[in-house]
Design a protein around this nucleic acid. Structure first.
Length: 213
DNA sequence: CGTATTTGACCAGCGC
DNA sequence: GCGCTGGTCAAATACG
């Protein structure tokens, strides 16, 4: 209930990242009129000066016609929370979801009662970006741990990877898949908000440039 | 030896 | 109601 002002909404942007070894994603919230915190919480950070990133004004929301490719490539990209429009189901749902979504929506915690899987109807804020890159995992300043991979049908590159933030209480997830039409296009979907700064992960002091965010 | 990744299985949601 | 697909778990394996 609190905090998640963006909960339930998901936006997609098209980024153009050249095929460098370590592409990064930056938040051009100004362009999109996006709240800083949202993007920051999602892990979008400004790269260090000279960082290889480049998000140009080419970046456009998937909701735009230019992004139809994305919807086509995926049978049901965001079934629950539609891109941009979020769920208009009913507000009450939010309360319930925030209730169980509080801490067990991703664990499924079948450890407890045999197999009581928590409903996956999570309403975490989502942002998906389409980038052009050779590497799957964009360097966004956070540390991710892969916890699953799935075969996606209707795709020439049927591999979708699932990552989770390695930080202690951070439940942010990331989904990475390649576009079927263009193997160089990577669709990255962030879900949730980071409860920490990138520096926490990269304790190596990835510079204060992050703090400027 | 500790940590990260891979991979198969399981489960829930959704469409038909 | 059934089948399909997506998402997650957890054991096994690989790597540093």
């Amino acid at each position: 209930m609190e905090g998640n002002q963006g909960a339930g909404s998901s936006r997609c942007y098209l980024l153009d990242v050249p095929p460098v070894s370590r592409p990064s994603v930056a938040a051009h919230q100004m362009e999109f009129g996006y709240p800083k915190e949202s993007l920051q919480g999602l892990g979008f950070v400004a790269p260090p000066h000279g960082g290889p990133f480049l998000l140009s004004t080419d970046a456009v929301p998937f909701t735009n016609p230019t992004a139809t490719c994305c919807e086509k490539s995926m049978s049901k990209p965001w079934s629950n929370e539609e891109v941009g429009t979020s769920d208009s189901k009913d507000p009450n749902d939010q309360t319930s979801s925030s209730k169980d979504g509080d801490n067990s929506w991703w664990r499924g915690s079948s450890l407890d009662k045999g197999k009581v899987k928590v409903k996956r109807k999570m309403r975490e804020p989502r942002f998906c970006f389409q980038t052009r890159s050779d590497v799957d995992v964009l360097d966004d300043g956070y540390k991710w741990r892969k916890y699953g991979q799935k075969v996606v049908k209707n795709s020439l590159h049927p591999s979708r990877s699932y990552y989770r933030c390695t930080h202690n209480n951070c439940r942010v997830k990331k989904r990475v898949e390649r576009l079927s039409e263009d193997c160089r296009m990577v669709i990255t979907t962030y879900e949730g908000r980071h409860t920490h700064s990138p520096c926490d992960d990269e304790n190596s002091s990835e510079h204060e440039c992050f703090s400027s965010f």
